[in-house]
Design a protein around this nucleic acid. Structure first.
Lengths: 249, 249
DNA sequence: TAGTGGTCTAGACCACGTA
DNA sequence: ACGTGGTCTAGACCACTAC
């Protein structure tokens, strides 16, 4: 009978652990090139697949990024701080500022791939918004030339048909100012936050490397009557964002 | 010259895509067993490593979970809803209820691995709390017998030394009620939310399978004077949580 | 052109879970 | 006992990047 000793970690794990420690100890800095497959094979006397497996551990942890034909590099982070409560205060969109102005932490951003369409409401949207058809504004946001967020805003179709909300340019203050003009001022917001690994199409559109989760924020905007007037689903590159929420006891 | 046609996806990707579609189409339900390595080898006439690679795609996406000696299974989700703003209202902890009572969506929870220690403050904690030494309460929360969250609360050492806050049982209302007793009532909270892949020790303690990110919530509690009295870092299994924040415009 | 990572094959031995 | 996934070897060809 053997005593129930935990097994030695496999070779590839020990190599991955050593590399991770080296990174955290500062031996490799952000953007530095790590030892490649050939270097690990020579250093540890292992097969190629084993060296690959060691590197894939770090890659799937989001600590390293492979570049074809070049090498494996330590990942760089510079997150955007997104303020949950403060940024939606009436002062912001009441005075003609777009909400997103405050988001990029001073860095310029661009909106890509804007599409506006009338669609049958998805099951969730139908329940929350209380309608069968919605107008959807889909767009992608980029900062420093890199895509960071996909967003899809849904509005009850009858409410917004023919307004600036279904136009590419929604005018000063954005969609919330237009909802106010229509007499449906948003006064309350709920945000649901989840995190998961991206679906392949999300990874494509956000140019995510392996090991990068997405943060999914589902925001609902309510009017004084308690009715929901907007459902906004945001999918964010988790490596590019810090969400901040402030509230009182 | 070739036209710049995107390459055909590799075999393992196409197999992974087919399996993913089958899951999303409901051909496999939560907890169902997927075709294993041998089945894929036979079905597609591929080598073992290729079949493995196809399955590893789904595993790293968090869609499937491997069980040694048994098979690969479709992952199951049943998240806990955690209310950000509402749960910290004074009514809750002012009347003797522990904050966590409202968290598990009605399911019972347990606290594991509670340790309480006086330590030199980490760099972040020192800056936020304005002190060199802290008392830290570390614990793990489990729901339905499965670990879901690691938490570490830091308090300024001089403030809480000798109080119930450094005892295993903090009494009715928990640490916030004790801070109130000390005249340092928390009145404002800031939560920073991030998501990333877990470090190996986090994956161990939360029993996370590959492809599961963690949500990191860093909460700071402020008193009326504006001083920070607690820094609480929570690491949550992303598959087990939905965070909800409510706020007004 | 040389070196890198990406894909793939055809084997091997092991630990583990189920029956 | 058998089938499963976990680890590992020793090759191969390819696409891409840097020089």
């Amino acid at each position: 009978m053997q005593s129930p000793v935990p097994h030695d970690p496999p070779i590839y794990r020990r190599i991955a652990d050593r590399l991770r420690q080296a990174i955290q100890a500062g031996e490799f800095r952000d953007g530095d090139r790590l030892p490649g497959e050939n270097a690990l094979m020579a250093e540890y006397g292992i097969a190629r697949a084993t060296a690959r497996q060691a590197l894939s551990v770090l890659i799937n942890e989001g600590m390293a990024v492979p570049r074809r034909g070049s090498g494996v590099y330590v990942r760089q982070f510079r997150p955007i701080r997104r303020h949950g409560s403060r940024r939606l205060s009436r002062e912001q969109w009441g005075t003609g500022r777009a909400i997103w102005d405050g988001d990029a932490s001073g860095r310029p951003y661009v909106v890509d791939d804007l599409t506006i369409a009338r669609e049958p409401a998805a099951e969730d949207a139908a329940r929350v918004l209380g309608c069968d058809e919605v107008w959807v504004r889909r767009r992608r946001y980029s900062v420093d030339g890199r895509p960071v967020q996909l967003a899809a805003s849904c509005f009850p179709a009858e409410l917004v048909a023919g307004t600036a909300i279904v136009q590419p340019d929604t005018g000063p203050g954005g969609v919330y100012a237009r909802l106010r003009d229509l007499g449906h001022t948003p006064v309350h917001f709920t945000e649901e936050v989840r995190a998961r690994m991206p679906a392949p199409d999300e990874a494509d559109r956000l140019a995510l490397s392996a090991g990068t989760p997405v943060i999914v924020v589902c925001r609902t905007a309510y009017t004084t009557g308690g009715g929901a007037v907007e459902l906004n689903i945001m999918i964010m590159d988790a490596a590019s964002y810090v969400l901040q929420y402030d509230f009182d006891a």
